[in-house]
Design a protein around this nucleic acid. Structure first.
Lengths: 300, 300
DNA sequence: ATAATGTCTTTTATCGTGAAAAAACAGTTT
DNA sequence: AAACTGTTTTTTCACGATAAAAGACATTAT
């Protein structure tokens, strides 16, 4: 089993959804652009769609014969990337207790446990190392630094530095910059979510990420933009395990975002600074309260 | 050829230098700690030292029989890590012209050219990607972003942010912190170098790195500390290809460092800020002038 | 009893290999 | 001739295998 065909399966599933909407499919290159895969994969997809009687395919004509059923889809779990699978397993282990800082990480054991090759695990760990949670001992094992209070503080320190700067850059952007339209759209989505927060509160995390990424992008600095990956990753898992008062927390955050957006639109750097600081402070507190260990406030 | 024994060879070479100083070697675990390798490697080293008549080895007694000659050493190039080899090749290509931004990077071609497996190249590229010079297209090739003016500006922007903060943290460190002793030692080294700058100017880059790392460490923030790897990497190669006015530049930098050190010792945050800013500004200018393309000053 | 050495086991680093996916090339259709 | 389809080549991704290096265990010396 040298390489799974998850790219194909995932694109196939997404391709099925196109069948609902049209009577015939566009050209192969166009489909490729639409689904973000190569023509090779598109042709495999079309081949199968023909085999299962979903379409009639002859050169340029690709006529839809029937609407896809539930069992036409590949199972969700078969569409994941290997690195997603490894990341999930790894994070589960890391968060499911027993992961003390200082503990060593064994590539071989991880690979066996997840049922993948060691190369994939190695590559995952290398990629993952930039999040600052693990560290490599030269010619030897990885060491878990752990999701500690210190980690959260270091992370938020940088986040605040970067976001304050990005927000200031954002507010200074010229009137005709397209970001203002993006911001308006996000504002609308926030208002909508605020109105239905009681039921849709769990949709906040996705909106949160899009909003902050928009702001960070205004820095025009790849290191700042890339750093948001670290934050996004942490918050992604954080949202999954800390469900306490999720609704209230998110309601507050939405309100803070709206104030933050208003400040940005005012172009008043002072107001932006205040609104940004306020939101970041509560985000930090949320994160800090969700970290188990309640000891050591030692920081030089 | 599944794995080169460069760890052994490098440790062996370093081990030879110990023979100059003593009449008999310490215990195996002690040697391991000294050379930073496992006992397994130590034993291979001792075995060879015995074979080549350098020592007489019997259990605990390891008597030095003769002083090592030049041809006892393994050739330097055999002591490099694979990733060092790959990095050097890669950087040579990158800097030796013809590396336009947007150009795509081919793992297989790189691997063939360097004469290593693709896995090693892949791992190198993943590790290297955090420097912000290359970027991965999902399921496809890497793209060279290039060592451009924009890159240098983005890099220095973060550097300045981080170092100003670290320097302030440094100055605020308590009297009894061990860093003050480290700083004193570095100051001495700077004075010594300043006196002999005419001949030893090329020793500056190493001192520069140690000095800045000491300061960054005061931030107690892993992201700040780790970011210095990016700076160090860039400056490392920068020093190699831009030799114009190297002596003058380094003389100026040493003087700036001394002023910076004096400011830190004064604990006066205002002075620290001024000295730090001044030095970072000239470092930035040095870097910028060494970037080929003299066009596009467009930055939003 | 502690710390070394001798021996055996496990893990890491690296390669070659093969299937999935992308990309390039060649031939067709409108 | 521009854009498509058919076909072939190349590259990426992931695995298992193997030597180097680390680490663990057993034995011996001080």
């Amino acid at each position: 089993m040298s390489k799974s065909n998850n790219v194909y399966k995932d694109a196939y599933n997404r391709g099925l959804r196109l069948l609902d909407e049209t009577k015939s499919l566009p050209s192969e290159p166009e489909l490729g652009a639409l689904l973000g895969v190569s023509r090779t994969t598109i042709r495999s997809i079309l081949t199968r769609m023909e085999e299962t009687g979903l379409i009639a395919w002859n050169k340029r004509s690709k006529t839809v014969l029937r609407v896809p059923r539930q069992d036409d889809f590949f199972p969700e779990e078969e569409t994941d990337t290997l690195s997603q699978i490894i990341e999930r397993s790894f994070m589960r282990r890391l968060l499911a207790g027993g992961a003390e800082p200082g503990m060593q990480i064994n590539e071989l054991e991880l690979a066996r446990e997840i049922g993948v090759g060691t190369t994939s695990v190695r590559e995952f760990l290398i990629r993952f190392s930039r999040f600052g949670l693990i560290e490599k001992r030269r010619n030897s094992h990885w060491v878990l630094k752990g999701f500690t209070r210190a980690f959260a503080l270091e992370l938020t320190e940088i986040r605040e530095m970067f976001e304050l700067r990005s927000a200031a850059a954002f507010a200074a952007l010229p009137e005709d910059s397209p970001v203002w339209a993006d911001l308006d759209l996000l504002e609308d989505e926030h208002r909508l979510l605020a109105r239905e927060i009681a039921t849709r509160f769990n949709e906040f995390s996705e909106l949160d990420e899009r909003f902050h990424r928009l702001i960070h992008r205004a820095s025009h600095n790849r290191f700042i933009v890339d750093f948001y990956d670290v934050i996004a990753m942490i918050f992604h898992y954080h949202y999954q395990w800390n469900k306490a008062q999720e609704r209230e927390r998110n309601a507050v955050a939405v309100a803070e975002h709206l104030a933050y957006i208003a400040a940005l639109k005012s172009r008043d750097l002072g107001k932006v600074d205040v609104a940004c600081r306020k939101h970041l402070k509560s985000a930090r507190n949320t994160l800090l309260t969700s970290i188990p260990e309640g000891q050591q406030p030692q920081r030089a």
